[in-house]
Simulated scan of single mutants.
Amino acid sequence: ITSDKIGENLPEGITGLHLHNLCENNSYDLERTLEVVEQKFGHLFGQIQWLNLGGGHLMTHKDYDTDHLVSLLKALKARYPHLEIILEPGSAFAWETGVLVSTVADIVENHGVKTAMLNVSFACHMPDCLEMPYKPRIRGAYQEPVAGKPTYRMGGNSCLSGDFMGDWSFNKPLQVGDRIIFEDMIHYTLVKSTLFNGVTHPSIGLWTLDGRFELYRRFGYEDYKSRMS
């Protein structure tokens, strides 16, 4: 809700304010956000008990300035000692903690566009890529097409016409059977996956530091059959 819709007093029963710092931002973005929040909503701080700064704080990134974050929060608490300050850095805990490993099942070409058909689905396994939308990183690939290099669109294995993304370039042509590894596919991916049209979930496992794979969960037809009953 915008500040002009609230007025000078909060509705009865409202004890706090909740905001978000968009997605995967740093402490300096939060600093600018807080300046605007205090400017537009500060007159209400005396009426609330808590202030939830929400998500969007990528504090596990190697370049995130945690000392700056701590100083911001301490200063905020000093200005409003009666407030309980809350953070929801959910994605920061799952960021860069897992990949989605797929295999090229076929390569087709139409009107000069080469599509690598995968055994995974953007719609079923990576819906956040289509909904946000954002283009995931592929290990060993160029994020944007590079002139003169083999370039492909990635096609998902569901029946949806929009189950594709692209394009990425590679140093050498892709072959059927090649692995395509999508980086950072745990947060907002695994939890939003679906069994649409019977497309199987990817198995869940752990690569150990000594190179072993430990399988945690494999999905099958019974998971699909019992999904809605």
Rank of each mutant, 00 (worst) to 15 (best):
K149G: 03
Q175I: 00
P173W: 06
I181G: 11
G140W: 12
C129G: 03
K135I: 07
E183N: 14
W168G: 08
Y152F: 10
S161N: 07
E131N: 11
S193D: 01
R139N: 10
P150G: 04
M165Q: 13
G162I: 04
Y142M: 05
G156I: 05
G162H: 13
K135E: 02
Q175T: 09
F164A: 13
F164G: 00
D163W: 01
G177S: 07
K149L: 15
G162N: 15
G155F: 07
I186G: 01
N171I: 04
T151V: 11
W168Y: 15
V146Y: 06
D163S: 00
Q143R: 14
L130T: 01
A147G: 08
L174I: 10
R153T: 15
D163R: 08
G156K: 12
D163Q: 01
H187M: 04
Q143V: 02
M185T: 08
I181K: 10
G140L: 04
S169G: 11
P145C: 07
I181S: 02
R153N: 14
V191S: 12
Y134L: 11
E131S: 09
G148V: 05
V191K: 06
F170N: 09
G166N: 00
I186K: 10
P150K: 13
K135D: 06
R137M: 12
Q143F: 13
D178K: 13
G148C: 04
Y142A: 04
A141T: 09
A141G: 12
M185V: 05
V176C: 07
P150I: 05
I180S: 04
H187D: 06
Q143L: 14
D184C: 11
R153G: 08
T151G: 09
Y152A: 08
P150V: 09
K192N: 14
G166P: 03
G140N: 06
H187R: 11
A141I: 07
S158A: 09
I186Y: 05
K149V: 01
G156H: 07
K172Q: 14
V191G: 00
G177H: 11
L174W: 08
M185Q: 15
Q143P: 03
D163M: 09
L130D: 01
K192E: 13
T189P: 00
F182W: 15
R179P: 01
K135A: 06
S193L: 00
D184N: 15
N157H: 14
V191F: 00
P136I: 06
P173C: 10
E183L: 10
A141Q: 08
W168C: 05
E144G: 03
K172W: 01
I138W: 06
Y134A: 06
K192A: 00
V191W: 00
I138K: 07
V176E: 08
V176W: 02
G140M: 08
L190F: 12
S169F: 08
Q175K: 15
V146P: 03
Q175D: 12
I180D: 05
W168T: 04
K192S: 04
W168R: 12
P127Q: 02
Q143H: 15
S158L: 12
A141R: 02
S169L: 09
K149E: 10
R137N: 14
R137W: 07
E144F: 13
D184M: 09
Q143N: 14
F182T: 14
G177K: 11
I186D: 09
L130C: 02
P133R: 06
P136V: 02
